[in-house]
Design a protein around this nucleic acid. Structure first.
Length: 338
DNA sequence: ACCGGTCCCTGTTAGC
DNA sequence: TGCTAACAGGGACCGG
């Protein structure tokens, strides 16, 4: 599923493939994919038709395309969250599909080669006259140059909407890639992420310590710092040699800073690996799964040796999910987690 | 106001 | 072999 580095790769791809284009048609094939849009599917399509895509912005795992200002419509944006299986594919006129975004669902939680069926049907797709639709195509945007932007989402946790824009609280750009100090209303409560130069790292450290919860829960709290999911939380905690069950109140400033640095580091590395050869077909899919195959120290590695000390990685239930730790590098707190 | 638990959804896989 | 249950994931939402 797309984590922050993958979403950033998508943002970058959108910035280079669809900016400046105008939406000439919108086809909503699954209403559920626009369930967060207030006016429903018809209004969703109406608000986008005729609008120009002006900037591609990301904050945490939220992604949005700023729409042109003008009479007859508000100050708004096309907002996307890819959920756990969302993809945005640009299908250029006369070319096979360009994979703008990773990756077949489940590649990260079940490491292995890319799905041999999921992707090749895109390669085999003929030109615009006879496009073969992806089986999980949910929404299609027809663009004015004959290309299309496809929202494909197997598990439908992702969603699209066209919300109004609000000014940012700190006056800084709304996110990476934003020329303006605005954010979509549904993103207003989402904190900046670790790749955002406007993030106040020291303030995040204080905010984490002021919480009355456990460290991993705080790392996953998108109102403190955004973009850290279950995978990166576990990897960052392992790098920082901290147990996610540590009560935040017992943490030193330096410990919180260390785990935040580690999270930023893991994400930057993933971005560097996944984003290098973006334009080549399927590189994201292969690159992403390759990165995770080789680079995950603990996540999903139950029973395999810790890369640092060789102790078997341990799996514990956590909030209806799993946590992976090295029992030696990451000692559990004295008081067992609640 | 804050915090933890639940649910949304689908395809794959484990287990009976 | 064929079925069901468990599982993965982020975030909105709700109840304490």
């Amino acid at each position: 599923m797309p984590e922050l580095p993958e979403v950033e790769t998508v943002r970058d791809g959108l910035a280079r493939h669809v900016l400046g284009r105008t939406v000439v048609g919108v086809e909503v094939r699954r209403d559920y994919s626009v369930r967060r849009h207030d006016g429903g599917p018809v209004d969703f399509a109406a608000r986008l038709t005729g609008r120009r895509l002006e900037a591609a912005v990301r904050r945490g795992k939220f992604l949005w395309l700023l729409l042109d200002a003008g009479p007859g419509h508000g100050d708004d944006a096309l907002l996307a969250h890819l959920g756990m299986s969302g993809q945005l594919l640009v299908r250029g006129p006369g070319r096979p599909a360009t994979v703008v975004v990773t990756g077949p669902a489940g590649r990260l939680d079940r490491p292995g080669p890319p799905d041999p069926v999921d992707v090749p049907d895109l390669v085999a797709a003929p030109g615009p006259e006879g496009w073969v639709d992806h089986p999980h195509l949910r929404v299609r945007f027809a663009l004015d140059d004959g290309s299309a932007l496809d929202f494909v989402d197997q598990r439908t946790f992702g969603h699209l909407s066209v919300p109004d824009l609000l000014p940012t609280a700190d006056g800084a750009p709304g996110g990476l890639g934003s020329p303006r100090a605005v954010v979509p209303a549904p993103v207003a409560h989402i904190a900046r992420d670790l790749l955002d130069p406007a993030l106040d790292r020291a303030a995040v450290v204080d905010a984490v310590r002021s919480r009355r919860t456990e460290l991993k829960r705080a790392l996953l709290d998108q109102t403190l710092v955004s973009g850290i999911g279950n995978i990166y939380a576990d990897e960052a905690l392992w790098r920082a040699r901290l147990h996610g069950g540590r009560p935040t109140a017992t943490l030193r400033r330096a410990e919180v800073a260390r785990v935040l640095d580690a999270a930023a580091e893991v994400m930057s590395e993933a971005l560097a690996q996944g984003g290098t050869s973006f334009d080549a077909l399927y590189v994201d899919v292969n690159g992403a799964s390759g990165y995770f195959d080789r680079s995950l120290a603990v996540y999903g590695q139950e029973g395999r040796p810790c890369p640092r000390c060789g102790t078997p990685v341990r799996r514990d239930a956590f909030a209806n999910r799993s946590s992976f730790t090295c029992p030696r590098c990451q000692p559990r707190p004295r008081r067992p987690r609640a």
